[in-house]
């Protein structure tokens, strides 16, 4: 009797949250999908059916091509950079050196600050001015005699987006390090010892034993970093404002919707972002919840 009443209470306690998520996540996604199929262009909502024309428009749109290319390039550099740097730092910190806690704190602190703060600071570090107006990192390179490193950062023709990956890696590689360090700590010492007894060199131990054991962590990190990368917005805006060479879908969505009032197209960009994130995250969610069920 009491049990039944409590079951009803349990449902009652979670239903506001479930309802809120149902509306704000799934309801709004459906609503966005509807807008993306409409001809809404202007301040007032207009749900005139337009079929897939907004999507077709995007696929034929040179600006969207720039966005896709920039996103792919940025994602490759950002995810790759974070994985390599994070793994390298985690392995270094796993050697039992003195001062590990200090280094870990330093490597991870950028995670605590916003992309906007990061962007504002890196905007001045990556100042592209040349000649006598040299400043930021370029000036530092010049003073250190590393002139060959002087470059025009995010204003480099065609490759500017690659420079944006630097502050992004600065901000997120510590997180990847923390993930890997957790994974390394979970590997029992006996595993390494056994390999060493068998005559494996330290490098072989890492390559053949440790790295394969860290694969699930790499997968998690790729999914998390990948979905952050697809959504990148604040960082670019803070470093460089909204410029066409550095355009990405999230910025295009923003300008076309809220500056240009082209709601139909904005919603279509939002839906395409959602589809690409879903393609990345849903298999991962299924994979992890299935593993959990097996436990």
């Amino acid at each position: 009797m009491r049990f039944n009443r409590d079951s009803a209470l349990a449902v009652a306690l979670v239903s506001p949250s479930i309802l809120a998520v149902a509306i704000f996540v799934y309801g709004f996604i459906a609503w966005s999908a509807r807008v993306s199929l409409s001809a809404w262009k202007g301040l007032l909502p207009d749900y005139t059916w337009a079929g897939l024309s907004n999507y077709a428009g995007l696929l034929a749109d040179p600006r969207f091509h720039i966005d896709v290319r920039n996103t792919l390039l940025f994602t490759t550099l950002f995810v790759g950079g974070c994985l390599v740097l994070g793994l390298g730092l985690a392995i270094l910190l796993d050697q039992g050196l003195r001062g590990e806690g200090f280094f870990r704190t330093i490597f991870l602190f950028p995670m605590a600050i916003s992309f906007i703060v990061t962007g504002v600071v890196w905007r001045w570090l990556m100042n592209p001015a040349q000649g006598s107006r040299l400043s930021g990192l370029n000036l530092l390179f010049d003073n250190l005699g590393l002139d060959f490193l002087i470059n025009s950062w995010h204003t480099t023709r065609d490759w500017g987006i690659a420079a944006i990956a630097i502050p992004a890696i600065w901000q997120m590689s510590g997180y990847t390090m923390a993930l890997y360090l957790g994974g390394l700590r979970a590997i029992p010492d006996e595993v390494r010892e056994a390999a060493r007894v068998d005559g494996a060199s330290e490098l072989q131990v890492y390559w053949h034993i440790i790295l394969p054991l860290l694969r699930p962590i790499t997968l998690s990190a790729m999914v998390i970093l990948g979905h952050i990368s697809l959504k990148v917005f604040d960082l670019i805006v803070a470093v460089a404002g909204k410029q066409l060479p550095l355009d990405v879908p999230a910025i295009y969505m923003w300008t076309t919707t809220f500056d240009g009032n082209f709601y139909g197209r904005g919603a279509a960009i939002g839906m395409m972002l959602l589809l690409s994130v879903a393609a990345l995250v849903i298999p991962y969610l299924i994979y992890t919840t299935r593993n959990e069920a097996q436990l």
Binding site: W31, S32, M253, Y263, G270
Partner: peptide
């Protein structure tokens, strides 16, 4: 319901922005 709630953590907010404002 749990994984359905969880998915909300990953969505790009650009896909809910227009309805949210409305």
């Amino acid at each position: 319901i749990f994984p359905l709630i969880l998915f909300g953590m990953f969505i790009p907010y650009q896909s809910v922005l227009i309805p949210l404002v409305q």
